[in-house]
Design a protein around this nucleic acid. Sequence first.
DNA 1: CCTACTGATAACCGATCGGTTATCGGTTCG
DNA 2: CGAACCGATAACCGATCGGTTATCAGTAGG
Lengths: 107, 107
Amino acid sequence: MQHGHDMLFRALADPTRRAIFERLCRDGEQTVGALTAQAGVSQPAVSKHLGILKLAGLVRDRQSGRQTHYHAERAALAPLADWTGRMTGFWESRFDELEDLLTRMDQ
Amino acid sequence: MQHGHDMLFRALADPTRRAIFERLCRDGEQTVGALTAQAGVSQPAVSKHLGILKLAGLVRDRQSGRQTHYHAERAALAPLADWTGRMTGFWESRFDELEDLLTRMDQ
DNA sequence: CCTACTGATAACCGATCGGTTATCGGTTCG
DNA sequence: CGAACCGATAACCGATCGGTTATCAGTAGG
């Protein structure tokens, strides 16, 4: 039902996009060029994926000269963890803790 | 990259489908008719959604006379919880516990 | 300045998706 | 049996998606 939830699930549904996000989580901040080099698709495709991830709140970008650096916004995964927790029907307090932690990590 | 992961994320990306799964998690086993009554789409649409959820391992069905009863397969969410945990980079042992528990819940 | 580089946008294309209506197979009941 | 019911399948349609190539704006450097 939640529109925010929707964009989150939708953004992570595509394997190429998920791979980009995983890379940003693993290796930290990356330029568009660096991401393109390993994405297996063209630079405009990568830019579009990054735009979608950004709309979902999963990444944020920082301009520096003519390069754009993107980094993962891990806190955006909190609703996903929360949803999973609610579906399993257990761990509620446990996942709430996680959500709080992730929110605090975002400053 | 993982094909199983892919079907899981993909299956949960659609809001109608996710609502059906949520209902099965909340209220337990339901017939196709009962699910259709609240899905807001036609019966064939519901059947297709159930087919996709089934392929992703998220639901299982049980035949009884001329009715088909579907129920959520909560254990199928374990890879999702695991992935989230790996992306956050913490909680690894914690999520492994969850995965184990969910797997055991599946008998 | 002019050229080269980086990344975003535009325009377009085929494939897939989610939905519909129509229909069919299987089951129950009068 | 025959009629009614339940759910799956088929055939189709418009919209959206993920990809491409071409191009544009902004920045850096000779």
